[in-house]
Design a protein around this nucleic acid. Structure first.
Length: 315
DNA sequence: GGAATAACCTGGATGC
DNA sequence: TGCATCCAGGTTATTC
């Protein structure tokens, strides 16, 4: 389940290998990997071949490789965007390497320093996708994402909020967004237009660390609790990033096919029935909007229902 | 307009 | 052993 740390590990692995490389060939093996691309496989192949990759960038869970032409040196106005979905992988392989299981797209590159190599997009569940998209200006004039200094972002990524590790992320804007949301805090954490990069695993871990019940109303959270939560989100993401991300099986790996080990550091997610590391009571799992929430019912108390009536304070 | 829900998809785990 | 069913979850279109 690639979330921000897993995607950042992939981006960091791709960057030195692809920056400055010329695309010398593209093979689309499964067009389901191009659900975000306006044209078909042939269009994807022809538009990408002959371009030069300027960088490897990321915002939240979206990756993109800005493209420029081989000769004119003009600024990048398009990019290959990629989302790993549930099970997507970006693998670096030697030229002519055997096909990967669930391989969907292969991009062959010639790098001026490293020679030829291939970027293989493999995806078991086909929720991930690639596309070529226009770069548009960021409304705040800040760099579009991590690994990209230009104030531009792919059009399909423009609606995605900045992630909490982005220097241009606005804490005040996050607090204002929560104050407007009449939804459970966990649902808001998973809303990529409010804060990006957080998925089910890190939402559960951050809420556990901040001692906030996942069904607490976002707008009912006091400012102090919001600040505590934001701090824990950042702490959890940074720690997971330092440990190479979370891998439960072979579905999340870095560009070399290696797993991360943050799964050993999880306190709540996937630990149903195990003792809470804080109080020793069992972690519980409940269904939550088509997925699961894991939390400690003792440390993360159920929010008291709002009561309308005389004497009730409203904010 | 905001919030909630369903659908997309594959393979491993589980039950019979 | 083989088959059917359930489950995992990020994004987005649809519905309320």
């Amino acid at each position: 389940m690639p979330e921000l740390p897993e995607v950042e590990v992939v981006r960091a692995g791709l960057a030195p290998a692809v920056t400055g490389a010329l695309v010398i060939g593209v093979t689309v093996l499964d067009e389901r990997a191009l659900t975000r691309h306006a044209g078909g496989g042939a269009d994807f192949e022809s538009r990408l071949t002959g371009r030069v990759v300027s960088a490897a960038a990321r915002r939240g869970k979206f990756l993109w490789l800005p493209l420029r032409s081989e000769t004119d040196g003009a600024p990048s106005d398009e990019a290959v965007i990629g989302h790993l979905g549930m099970s997507g992988q970006m693998l670096l392989r030697a030229p002519g390497a055997a096909s990967e299981r669930h391989e969907r797209v292969r991009i062959d590159l010639a790098h001026p320093a490293h020679g030829e190599l291939s970027v293989v997009f493999a995806d078991q569940r086909t929720f991930g996708s690639l596309a070529i998209d226009d770069l548009i200006a960021t409304p705040d004039a800040a760099p579009g994402g991590y690994g990209w200094d230009e104030a531009s972002v792919p059009a399909q990524v423009a609606h995605i909020a900045r992630d909490p590790l982005d220097p241009a992320f606005s804490d005040a804007g996050f607090r204002r967004a929560l104050a407007r949301k009449d939804s459970a805090i966990k649902r808001v954490l998973l809303d990529q237009t409010v804060v990006s990069g957080v998925g089910n695993i890190y939402a559960d871990e951050s809420l556990w660390a901040a001692r906030i019940h996942p069904e607490t109303s976002a707008r009912a959270l006091p400012t102090r609790a919001v600040n505590r939560l934001l701090g824990e989100v950042r702490h959890v993401l940074e720690k997971a990033l330092a440990e190479g991300g979370t891998s439960f099986d072979a579905q999340y790996v870095n560009v070399n096919g290696q797993a991360g080990y943050f799964a050993h550091s999880l306190n709540a997610y996937g630990r149903t029935g195990e003792p809470c590391p804080r109080c020793g009571r069992p972690i519980v799992r409940v269904s939550f909007t088509n997925r699961s929430s894991h939390f400690c019912a003792h440390c993360q108390r159920v929010p008291r229902p709002a009561v309308d009536g005389p004497g009730t304070a409203h904010v």
